[in-house]
């Protein structure tokens, strides 16, 4: 893994300058706003503390997926558009290593976002025993889903070779994943179609798991296994697509 030199270049753009790091301030502002509303809004503040944590966890994961997806969906296509990908492919680094280093840089963005969110989780869980499970499960699902979305977005970035298109398709995939949990009403979720969509949707499983941990207080890991494995299967499918696609990296007529 040639000293993670590509990874360093990728993250340098996200952290080393105030322009690159402004997303951290934006993310912290969103967290502050949501936490403030949860604690002070008349209706929201009536929520059970577990439900507050659950809502906040959803925000963290959705924001993390969006950040990872958008970042990785332009990682290859911007190199292609800028004409730098040819030089990168010419170096004696395996294609999979190039792709993994780019994927790691987007996962790093998720990790930073997650670290920023931890103080908020601790404050929202004040006085309960939910701080640790919230941190653990948000970390687990957020990391696995972020890796999976990064891999599929990098594959899309290579296939579409155009940043605008790959970002749009990635956002659509994320919205599709989030739709049953965030946008479907209770009645629609109870229909056969809604149930089927929830069963095959890794994001729904992650959200349902957080719901059962934080709201229903079922914190044992074995109780969450039915939700964990679909998320892992999704990540495995994404990694297979990722590996197959990176093997096809070559300079053709763009």
């Amino acid at each position: 893994m040639i000293h993670l030199i590509i990874y360093r270049l990728e993250i340098s753009g996200s952290f080393y300058s105030w322009r690159g790091a402004i997303w951290i301030i934006a993310a912290a502002s969103i967290f502050s706003l949501v936490a403030y509303l949860l604690l002070t809004d008349k209706e929201l503040s009536l929520l059970d503390q577990g439900e507050m944590l659950f809502t906040f966890s959803e925000v963290i994961i959705v924001l993390g997926l969006l950040m990872s997806g958008i970042n990785s969906s332009s990682s290859i296509s911007t190199e292609i558009e800028g004409g730098t990908f040819e030089c990168l492919l010419l170096t004696p680094i395996k294609h999979i290593q190039i792709a993994i280093q780019k994927m790691l840089s987007t996962v790093t963005i998720w990790i930073i976002l997650y670290l920023v969110s931890i103080p908020y989780l601790i404050v929202l869980a004040n006085g309960t025993n939910l701080a640790f499970p919230a941190i653990l499960y948000v970390g687990l699902y957020g990391t696995v889903l972020s890796i999976a979305i990064s891999m599929i977005s990098i594959a899309l970035s290579w296939i579409l070779k155009n940043s605008k298109n790959s970002i749009m398709v990635t956002i659509m995939i994320i919205l599709l994943l989030c739709a049953p949990s965030l946008f479907f009403g209770t009645s629609l979720r109870r229909t056969d179609f809604g149930i089927m969509l929830e069963n095959i949707n890794p994001f729904s499983h992650a959200i349902n798991s957080l719901d059962s941990v934080l709201v229903d207080n079922q914190q044992a890991f074995y109780e969450q296994l039915p939700h964990v494995w679909p998320v892992l299967v999704f990540a495995i499918v994404c990694s297979v697509i990722f590996v197959i696609t990176t093997k096809k990296f070559e300079v053709s007529k763009y």
């Binding site: 040639i2 030199i5 004409g83 730098t84 030089c87 170096t91």
Partner: peptide
């Protein structure tokens, strides 16, 4: 050839030297 335009010439060559 495309370039990472925010880099300077020395940084650009160093990046590729490290890739090799």
């Amino acid at each position: 050839t495309g370039f990472y335009n925010w880099m300077n010439g020395e940084e650009y060559l160093y990046y590729f030297a490290r890739l090799y």
